[in-house]
Design a protein around this nucleic acid. Structure first.
Length: 423
RNA sequence: GGAGGGAUGGCCGAGCGGUUUAAGGCGCUGGUCUUGAAAACCAGUGAACGGAAGUUCCGUGAGUUCGAAUCUCACUCCCUCCGCCA
């Protein structure tokens, strides 16, 4: 959520930021409502001040046995007036809040201007795509031939957009999860969280998934609950409505969860295979940090996520998303894209973002500065570390052999009973 | 699912219609004392809005009242017991 005070004082900066995103949002309405609320608030407070004074007097007079009928009558009218004014304030404040919830974050100044993914800027490449001296297979073909991925039967169980992992596939998936968790916990010093896979509305509002993107989520129980689209949602909300002490910052969490997404509007893209599924596994990194160092923390987060691909020996590149391609809540995002041989291109396996205080404001997540002082909103960041299904795609395809078998990357072998190859 | 109990500041806990600016304690911060520390003593310690005055906040939301932490209703969460269950 953007800061209404900033909007009041520096409207041009907000307007300009939104314009860079390609958003043309009229802020006049909000400012008008804001002005009205503050006027009514002043009025209501004056009334209440008088009510408090006179009520005390009435108490005093009654104690002395004096008749207070006329005062009581006056106050009855005043109370009615207060009630009406407060109702109006409440209703207008809700309007403002709802408007604000639908405004995206302002891009950081370092974010390249652009409208589509073509405008994203490549930052670096690591490794080089493998050369094959035989006709390569897609992960779909490899997985089905090996009997480790079963798309057909999964669609019988649930529908399209689901997969059934079998034997070595199921084991490989579990190995990838454990490898990623261990790497981040042991080498990168994150603490592990295993959260609920269902969250309430408030949690989804904090992260920016609601109210605007309701259609992307699986609703449960008439909309009282939602299946998590990413661990970001439950984990970011751990400190919702809390004031944490500065001493415990930065807080770094790593969390494995399945992720559930409707993917409405993605028709036609990646309809076959593991790339786009309604349910997929992901290991997510989430940080709560002080505002001052948040962009250094973003770089560290990125390199922690990159490390997974380095360890797995998978070629990748990093791009900075342009203003028009960034997610709703983000101020700056790096995508990590892994090489997918069958497609001859790099595909997203991680998205690392700094939300600055956007989510913290929505979720009222603050910290108390050392030595006391006013609580301040902290900054939240997160990034995939990594998307498991897509990582599995990259492993199958990059490590495929001519006979359709797949070499297991070194770092995963301890998790696979020392096995070097599938089958 | 059934029965009962509860929710007050960072924590414990008093208050059950009108000096409540929410008692008291713990914790925390500063000071005095001390070579230093502890103890003791003194002072200060919640949040939001506002330039300030002030207003609001005792789980949440409605209501009663001139006046609500205090009374009424609904809801949420927690605890205990029973039932069911991985």
């Amino acid at each position: 959520m953007i800061d209404i005070r900033l909007l009041r004082e520096d409207r041009d900066r907000i307007t300009d930021g939104l314009r860079r995103r390609g958003e043309d949002i009229d802020l006049t309405k909000i400012l008008r409502l804001d002005e009205e609320v503050r006027l009514l608030l002043k009025e209501s407070e004056g009334f209440k001040h008088r009510r408090n004074l006179v009520s005390d007097e009435i108490g005093e007079l009654k104690k002395r046995g004096v008749n207070t009928e006329s005062e009581t009558l006056d106050m009855r009218k005043l109370s009615q007036k207060i009630k009406e004014t407060d109702a109006r304030i409440k209703s207008l404040s809700e309007d403002i809040h709802n408007e604000l919830l639908n405004i995206p974050n302002i891009p950081h100044e370092s974010v390249p201007l652009g409208r589509t993914p073509d405008d994203n800027v490549e930052v670096k490449r690591w490794g080089s795509p493998p050369e094959f001296d035989f006709p390569i297979k897609s992960h779909i073909e490899l997985g089905e031939r090996l009997g480790i991925l079963d798309f057909q039967r999964a669609s019988r169980l649930a529908g399209s957009g689901f997969v059934l992992f079998r034997d070595g596939g199921a084991r490989l998936e579990r190995s990838i999860i454990n490898f990623m968790l261990d790497l981040h916990v042991k080498s990168h010093r994150y603490s592990e969280i295993s959260p609920p896979f269902i969250v309430n509305r408030e949690s989804a509002i904090t992260t920016g998934n609601l109210p605007k993107f309701e259609n992307d989520l699986f609703r449960v129980d008439d909309g009282n609950y939602y299946l998590v689209p990413t661990a970001e949602v439950p984990v970011t909300n751990i400190y919702r409505d809390e004031i944490v002490s500065e001493e415990i910052l930065p807080i770094c969490y790593v969390s494995y969860t399945p992720c559930f997404r409707k993917e409405a509007g993605s028709w036609g893209q990646d309809t076959r295979g593991l790339i786009r599924q309604h349910q997929f596994d992901k290991v997510e990194l989430v940080k709560f940090v002080k505002p001052e160092g948040s962009y250094e923390e973003l770089e560290k987060l990125l390199s922690d996520a990159e490390d997974v691909l380095k360890q797995l020996g998978l070629p990748y590149r990093v791009v900075t998303l342009c203003t028009g391609d960034m997610g709703f809540a983000s101020a700056k995002t790096y995508d990590i894209e892994v090489w997918v041989p069958s497609q001859g291109k790099y595909r997203e396996v991680s998205s690392c973002s700094n939300f600055e205080d956007f989510q913290a404001r929505r979720g009222n997540i603050r910290y108390r500065p050392r030595g006391g002082g006013k609580p301040r909103f902290l900054h939240t960041l997160n990034g995939s570390g990594l998307a498991v299904g897509r990582t599995l795609v990259a492993i199958l395809e990059n490590y495929q052999q001519e006979d359709g078998s797949v070499i297991i990357p070194n770092v995963l072998r301890p998790y696979m009973d020392g096995k070097e190859k599938i089958p």
